[in-house]
Design a binder for these strands. Structure first.
Length: 285
DNA sequence: TTGCAGGGGTCAA
DNA sequence: TTGACCCCTGCA
């Protein structure tokens, strides 16, 4: 899973199994990681900037220590989960999935900040990844706070910053009709009783039901929010790509979303969300 | 240069 | 079940 190799100054070298930043950061689960010319990855996670260098085996964490690794980065990178076992279990199901897992072998399901995932996936609807990233960066520039250290990016905005913005301000981020959903959601989350309530502590079916009541959140976005914030790994978000790949690999014909959802729940069980990531990455690439 | 289709959905009619 | 919604990109 992971092992600390050494601490040099403020750099921590960690051996991480079943991890490849290209696979993990470009499988559609997150939008704020970028690689520079030297191969260093930069990301902003819950207001903290992190630089990562991966040499194919060892991952070097910049400007961190063992305590922060354990408290912040182990949960975020899901380093306490045994992916070897998960992959073994999934690969046994069928040769298609085995191939998808082999292709995206370095995918880890990140446990991301709930608020960031909530707003990011509202913006993702009917949209493509490069543009989603552009809109989110613009949102952070206009409404987010600066981050400590050598980072160009701002933190993801606080809910209050979005709730207090005008629709005209939000529209400057070029999110189109989605900005209206963003504003309404921010207002819902910054108004009592939700403001003082920790929604993440509710049972997941209640969270899902609540998310679906928010304008701009449908089945797919609700499932993404549950999956990528680490609340429920048994959900199986179905977008156009997943629908296409499931029809091709499992159904051999055009199939409606409800049937695909029912099949995935039964077939992949509690690992449906992780199976979805391998299949999505395989389908996209 | 211009026009058009399509993109990791959702909503309302 | 279907079209509209923003706006960007790729392509002819």
């Amino acid at each position: 899973m992971f092992r600390i190799i050494s601490q040099k100054g403020n750099h921590l070298q960690v051996k991480m199994t079943n991890f490849d930043p290209v696979h993990t950061f470009s499988c559609g689960q997150c939008f704020r990681w970028n690689q520079d010319h030297d191969g260093v990855w930069s990301g902003i996670v819950s207001g903290t900037g992190l630089k990562l260098l991966w040499d194919g085996d060892i991952c070097t964490f910049g400007d961190t220590d063992e305590q922060e690794l354990m408290e912040k980065w182990v949960p975020y990178f899901d380093l306490d989960t045994d992916y070897t076992e998960i992959k073994r279990e999934l690969a046994m199901k069928d040769p298609c999935l085995e191939k998808a897992i082999s292709y995206g072998h370095g995918i880890r399901l990140l446990r991301q900040n709930f608020t960031e995932v909530l707003f990011s996936f509202i913006l993702s609807q009917n949209n493509n990844i490069p543009r989603i990233k552009q809109i989110i960066e613009s949102l952070c520039i206009h409404f987010g706070n600066p981050v400590q250290g050598d980072f160009k990016q701002n933190a993801f905005p606080e809910i209050s910053a979005l709730a207090n913005a005008s629709l005209e301000d939000l529209n400057r981020c070029r999110g189109g009709y989605r900005c209206r959903y963003l504003l309404e959601t921010a207002k819902i989350f910054s108004t009592p009783p939700l403001k003082s309530m920790d929604i993440q502590k509710l049972p997941t079916d209640e969270i899902r039901k609540f998310l679906l009541s928010i304008p701009g959140i449908g089945e797919k976005v609700a499932d993404c929010i549950l999956l990528y914030s680490g609340l429920d790994r048994s959900v199986f978000p179905i977008d156009r790509w997943i629908k296409r790949v499931m029809e091709k690999l499992y159904f051999k014909k055009e199939t409606d979303v409800q049937s695909i959802r029912a099949f995935s729940k039964e077939y992949f069980g509690g690992l449906a969300g992780i199976a979805q990531q391998y299949l999505f990455y395989y389908a996209r690439e």
